[in-house]
Computed example of a mutant assay.
Amino acid sequence: MPSDATETLSLSNKEKALRDMYDAISARNMFPFWATSDDVTNDEVRQLMATTRAIPYHWSYENDIAPLLKTSAELISMDDSERRSLVLVNPGLNPKRATVSTMYTAYRLNDPNEIMPPHKHSPSAIRFGLTGKGNFTGVEGEDVVFGPGDMVLTPNDAWHNHGTVGDEQAVNLSVLDLPLVETLNAIHFDHKYTEIEDGVEVQKKVQTAKYPSDYSAATYGQGGLLPRWVDNMRGGGLSSPMYVYRWEAMMEIFDRFKDIDGDPHEALMVEYTDPTRGGAVFKTITFFAQMLRPGEKTLPLRQTASLLVAPFEGTGYSIIDGERYDWKQFDTLAVPGGAWCEHHNGSDSQPVYMFVASDEPTLKKLSLYKRWGQTAAGDVVRYL
């Protein structure tokens, strides 16, 4: 047999053997971590980088969310389900319940005087008021009634319930680190809430209030002044013990600093912090309020942290990885980690206020948090 024919047969046999080997690897739920010079199908870099990932996305409250919230309130009662929330699912991650890879946003409308029973879970969560004055969360014995702009914590493993008090509907949005906790296989829920009555453990549908309704503000609302006689570890000490952050306090800060230059990449941005430790309110995710003054725009910023951005007041647009997203009040923007992002206030007379969630604390703990910005001249500078 001629040598070239022998070489062709040898190559053919090798290709068949390779195919058989790759089939065997796949059948045994393994992945080949190598690449050969003429093999594209099993290029490990291409395959590893081709996993599902979050994409920039925009949900309109007016067009997408509010109509479905209204319909859900008409069709699903508390007798049908103890939960009635719309979770925003990133198209790049579907069907996983995730708005970005580590967090999800959910919107909830409650009818008047509609309160669900207590429960707790391992994911950390917040509620941020959008409409109505009677949003309600009872958390670890503190009954919190909150309105637009107020943020309420429901920490990891803390008993809490949600609903509305008063005679009007109310809407709030939630942010949870559930996708992160789910990835770590650490999800748990508990719906059997009990209290001790006359020495007997009794299951209950309503938490008994243990603290005054203004306990968080009265205890921690001064900043820099911490009473020593209070229980700063309530709820297990897994989060900030201050469970409600009022919008009025945030507005006081913005009013105080509205005439300074601010940060070119973030304008005026204030982080919600744990008053006892000075860090983020949770160990996994953190939250900010962001102000863009009339006509203000931010320079492009890129970071490894993922963001969920919810415009609270005002209109404008954001450019995420070169694509423009126009937004209005109560919308949500998904900004995946690694995406370039800039925000523009669309008004020359009114400020914009945005509520922002970030997985920055997790990235920092893993030494994976990095940050780049573009200068006004277009140069890219690494900041962290």
Rank of each mutant, 00 (worst) to 15 (best):
P2A: 11
T6C: 08
T8N: 13
S10A: 14
N13E: 13
E15Y: 12
E15A: 15
E15G: 06
R19D: 13
D20M: 09
I25Y: 04
S26P: 00
M30V: 00
P32W: 06
F33V: 15
D38Q: 10
V40N: 15
T41M: 13
E44P: 04
E44K: 05
R46M: 10
L48D: 01
A50K: 00
T52K: 15
P56Y: 12
Y57K: 02
H58N: 11
Y61N: 02
D64E: 11
P67D: 02
P67N: 04
T71R: 14
A73G: 10
A73R: 14
D79P: 04
S81G: 07
E82M: 14
S85F: 11
L86N: 05
V89S: 02
P91L: 15
P91Q: 15
N94Q: 05
P95G: 01
A98H: 04
T99K: 10
I115P: 04
P118E: 06
P118L: 04
K120T: 02
H121C: 08
S122G: 02
F128I: 02
G134K: 08
G138I: 00
G138Y: 11
E142W: 06
V144Q: 02
G147Y: 09
T154A: 15
A158L: 04
H162T: 03
G163D: 06
G163T: 06
G163W: 09
D167K: 10
E168L: 05
E168K: 10
P179E: 01
L180C: 03
L184D: 10
F189V: 05
D190Y: 06
H191V: 08
K192G: 07
Y193D: 01
E195C: 07
E195L: 13
G199C: 08
V200W: 01
V202W: 01
V202H: 01
Q207G: 13
K210R: 13
Y211G: 02
Y211V: 01
A218Q: 14
T219M: 10
T219E: 03
G221A: 11
G224Y: 09
P227G: 06
W229Q: 09
D231L: 05
N232V: 15
M233R: 12
G237K: 03
L238E: 01
M242N: 02
Y245S: 02
R246K: 15
W247T: 00
K258C: 13
D263W: 12
E266R: 14
A267C: 10
L268A: 09
M269C: 13
M269H: 08
D274C: 07
T276N: 08
R277C: 01
F288N: 08
F288W: 14
M291K: 09
L292K: 00
R293L: 03
P294V: 03
G295T: 01
E296V: 00
T298W: 11
R302A: 11
R302N: 09
A305K: 04
S306C: 04
V309S: 08
E313M: 07
G314V: 00
G316W: 06
G322F: 06
E323Y: 06
D331I: 05
P336T: 05
G337D: 08
W340H: 03
H343D: 05
N345H: 02
N345L: 01
D348P: 00
S349Q: 12
M354C: 05
D359Y: 03
E360I: 14
P361L: 12
S367V: 00
Y369E: 13
Y369C: 05
R371H: 07
G373V: 14
A376Y: 06
A376N: 07
D379G: 03
Y383W: 14
